[in-house]
């Protein structure tokens, strides 16, 4: 298989996976197959999985040594985003329960 074919297939596989990971949560919500907390967690897990698919197949981020700087940057961004976003939700949520 040539490089070209392998790369094309990579995009197609990514597209297929992402489409599946989109169809499932939309179906769950549309037909009301799950409720409440279970549904919320399922949607969150599928979204994270789809984001990982996008990173791997469309943005070509992998764990190989050559691109470690980019990977470090993403991990660092995720760390800071987690601190800021979850910190915000924690503080504002805590405040809301006491108002």
């Amino acid at each position: 298989m040539t490089d070209r074919q392998r790369e094309t297939r990579m995009y197609l596989v990514g597209f297929g996976l992402a489409l599946t990971l989109t169809l499932v949560p939309f179906a769950l919500v549309h037909w009301g197959l799950m409720q409440g907390r279970t549904l919320a967690i399922t949607i969150a897990v599928l979204a994270v999985a789809q984001i990982a698919v996008h990173l791997r197949f469309f943005l070509h981020i992998d764990l190989s040594r050559q691109k470690r700087e980019d990977l470090q940057l993403i991990l660092f961004t995720v760390l800071l985003l987690a601190i800021m976003a979850f910190g915000t939700l924690w503080i504002m949520g805590n405040l809301a329960t006491r108002m």
């Binding site: 760390l79 800071l80 800021m84 910190g87 924690w90 503080i91 805590n94 405040l95 006491r98 108002m99």
Partner: peptide
């Protein structure tokens, strides 16, 4: 640098959130 992102609430301790926060 990293810790500087973890301390912002000390500018508003008196906002009304709980003691644990």
């Amino acid at each position: 640098a990293v810790l500087s992102f973890c301390v912002w609430l000390h500018h508003f301790f008196t906002m009304g959130q709980s003691a644990n926060v």
